[in-house]
Amino acid sequence: MKKTRLLLVFALAALVLVSGCMGSSSPQKSSKTASPSSTVVSSSTPTETKEVTCQCPKPKPYYPLTITDFAGRKVTIEKEPKRIVSLAPSITETLYFIGALDRVVGVTKFDDFPPGVQKGRTVVGGFSDPNIEVIASLKPDLIIGTSMHLKYVDKLEKIAPVVIIAPKNMDEVYKSIELLGKILNMSGEAEGVVQFMKAEVSSVEFRVANKTRPRVLFITWWNPLYVPGNGTFQDSLIELAGGENIFHDASGWAQVSLEEAVARNPEIIIFSAHSGATIDEICKSPLANTEAVKNGRIYFISDDNAISRPGPRLVDALKELSYFIHPEVYGYNFQPVSCPVEG
């Protein structure tokens, strides 16, 4: 009964507030002085009636909107973007997750998520070489690119406002999603995506907390050998997944020698799906002398795009890395990858 009465009180209060803003009349005691926002109406009855006109403020238009992008540029969006050209797969994926894919009219030839994303949309070129003429023909009202597209900004700005999105770590990925949500007047949807990602990250961190951190060698390309160093998503994801990147001291994408990798004796080796390596090559290489190969701790990433594109799917890559690095916290028992026995 208390709950019912409380709800009734809230409902009556809301009704009174709405009625006031609609300019409805209500009995009032007579007053000698009328406020500027009210009108006193004479009446032949003993009680005067005051008609109150509420001066409700009009909501401020959302656009034009001025934001600061990842390149430190002030960009003004005059109206709500309805025709967007995305110059990077990661941007297209982010727009999909916040529910704005229907606004995208142009994508790159490398866009492949969600499946069929190119269907019904114009391909505007590659990732690093957009076709300016094709973009202009689409008559976009917003173009979203990365730091790689800064060299094209002068030309692109003649077509539509240009926003640069270039996150370098997980926290900046969150900020990039929130920024896109703000630009599109979809902050609620964007915040929902961010909160989901943070919950997934926290779940992994909780599982691997206080676990011993095994030494991890992540190989993005086999010959020559390229590995992710400090400042890459792979490096930060390895740490979040409970591992230790043996080339964390390197900067960015680094070319290293097999001898140096062997000297650091990784306990786990993870290959990108398109690294070009085979088990046979690994077993015949100097890496055969590492603990990782001896113990069969060799893994291949299932989706290189998920782990390399700065967008919402990074949490999927994080979970897969944590399966490889700490399968015991999930109750998994991966079949060891063993080198063939000669003879």
Rank of each mutant, 00 (worst) to 15 (best):
T278Y: 09
S37F: 14
Q255I: 06
W253H: 06
K182D: 01
I177R: 00
L17P: 02
E80P: 02
F196L: 15
L225E: 05
F97E: 13
R213P: 04
Q335H: 12
F206V: 05
E320A: 06
G243D: 04
V256P: 04
L314Q: 06
K50H: 07
N265A: 13
L17A: 14
P115C: 08
I279S: 11
R207V: 02
F218C: 08
N223C: 05
V105W: 03
T92A: 04
V337W: 03
D141F: 12
G116H: 05
V75L: 08
G242P: 10
A11M: 15
V256Y: 11
P140G: 11
K60F: 09
G243I: 13
I98P: 03
K29H: 04
S187M: 06
S37V: 12
I67W: 01
V105T: 09
H274E: 12
V173L: 07
G311M: 03
I219D: 02
V173Y: 07
R313S: 02
S26L: 15
P340R: 06
R83T: 13
F206Q: 14
P327G: 07
V85D: 07
L95D: 00
T212G: 13
P310Q: 03
V75Q: 05
S257H: 10
P114A: 08
N265V: 05
T76R: 05
D235I: 06
P36E: 12
A273S: 13
A100S: 12
E178A: 14
G242E: 08
F97W: 14
L95R: 00
P312A: 05
W221G: 10
P224W: 01
T92F: 04
A11T: 14
S275A: 15
T278P: 07
I77C: 02
T290V: 10
T212I: 15
L101P: 00
I282W: 00
P266W: 00
K58S: 15
K139E: 11
S251A: 10
T53Y: 11
I268W: 00
I67D: 03
I269T: 01
S90Y: 03
R313Q: 10
K175D: 13
G126M: 04
P64T: 03
D69C: 07
S203C: 00
D111N: 08
K60E: 14
S272G: 10
V40Y: 06
G242K: 04
M148S: 13
L15S: 14
K2H: 13
R264Y: 05
E205K: 15
Y174Q: 00
F300T: 15
Q118L: 04
D304L: 09
P130N: 11
T146I: 11
I165D: 00
F70Q: 07
K29S: 10
K175R: 09
L314F: 01
Q195V: 11
V256T: 08
G296Q: 11
A88G: 04
K109L: 05
G252T: 01
Y62G: 04
G125R: 04
C283A: 09
S35P: 03
V41I: 14
R121T: 02
M186Q: 15
A14V: 14
L142P: 00
A190C: 09
E291Y: 05
N333P: 01
T53G: 11
M186Y: 06
G311K: 03
P61A: 15
A254G: 02
